[in-house]
Design a protein around this nucleic acid. Structure first.
Lengths: 179, 179
DNA sequence: ACCTGAACACCGTTCAAGT
DNA sequence: ACCTGAACACCGTTCAAGT
């Protein structure tokens, strides 16, 4: 006799995302996620293969949000700023996407592409079609590296980190601009 | 009655580093490390506070190695290439340093400084003293971001990744050079 | 068809007892 | 002083039994 579902994959992934930010990856346990969505841990296995796959889904949700935040932007500096805003809004998820541990299955390529589209478009304008991919990789690598370092406390030598960000944005955008 | 030691902190950290690269962070268990150095897991607690602290020691060893690899370099492109070489030699440790999980105590600042010295020196030459720190952060962020993305499979759109690296090195070094 | 308690394997950590 | 087996708490995962 079928029973109405008490939760959903979507609710599970959202609970996992929230838990990740609030308590960190180590506290993202199956029992904790289950508790948030109102079931017991074994029930989660009806909707996700295992914990590592759930973590992959969190990564994909994060990339989807990044893509949405970058969608429609036309200015390279503004794009970089929005990239950084995601890092500040979801620091743990950002770090997870930057360096998923061994054992976590690779994200579906579609999610990475969604996050890459706007960057490629803007870089094609700035650098020309033939350098668009190299320029996008340069810009993305710098943004991702800066935000990661900022989030994990790698900038310890004082100075103004916001100023360093603006310095970097200006120089990098100029560096990948055709001319 | 004292007994000759059967292992040492140094051997433990080295075993942990090796295990991290060979099997990944999830397989870096106290039992596995203990087995490599010839004791049982509880004995490790005589030399390290807990697993997270052991992981911190692995991070510090990695930063020390990075510092050694960058020591004495005088060319910015060569410095970037050596940075990347460490990422290729110790991918798991590199990713760990880039995004340590929650719960792992912060590395001692001394180790980060050792890795930063050469970068600051070169950037001061290129960008002038007043922009040295901003320039170092720009260069480091780009290197770290590029290498991280390369290691975790973020570059999936084809093209030649080595070419993208060389494009980036050239443009970034030019971008932070005084002028 | 989804949900659960019980069970199992595995891991980090502590501790009393050995040498 | 270091080492160990035993023990405990915790977690991921499976599964038979419920609705």
């Amino acid at each position: 006799m079928p029973t109405p579902d008490r939760t959903s994959l979507d609710a599970i992934v959202r609970a996992a995302c929230d838990l990740l930010e609030e308590e960190g990856l180590a506290s993202l346990t199956m029992a904790a996620v289950a508790s948030r969505v109102g079931v017991r841990a074994p029930s989660l296995y009806k909707r996700v293969r295992d914990r590592n796959t759930l973590i992959r889904l969190v990564e994909e949700a994060t990339l989807a949000e990044l893509g949405a935040r970058l969608d429609g932007v036309h200015d390279a500096a503004e794009l970089a700023n929005r990239y950084r805003a995601l890092g500040h809004a979801r620091p743990a998820a950002f770090q997870l996407v930057m360096a998923p541990g061994a054992g976590i299955p690779p994200v579906d390529e579609q999610y990475r592409q969604a996050a890459t589209e706007s960057i490629l478009r803007i870089c094609a304008e700035l650098a020309g079609e033939e350098h668009a991919l190299d320029a996008a990789r340069t810009l993305t690598a710098w943004c991702a590296g800066f935000i990661s370092m900022e989030l994990n406390g790698s900038f310890q030598l004082g100075g103004d980190v916001d100023r360093a960000w603006e310095f970097g944005v200006e120089r990098i955008v100029a560096a990948i601009t055709r001319g």
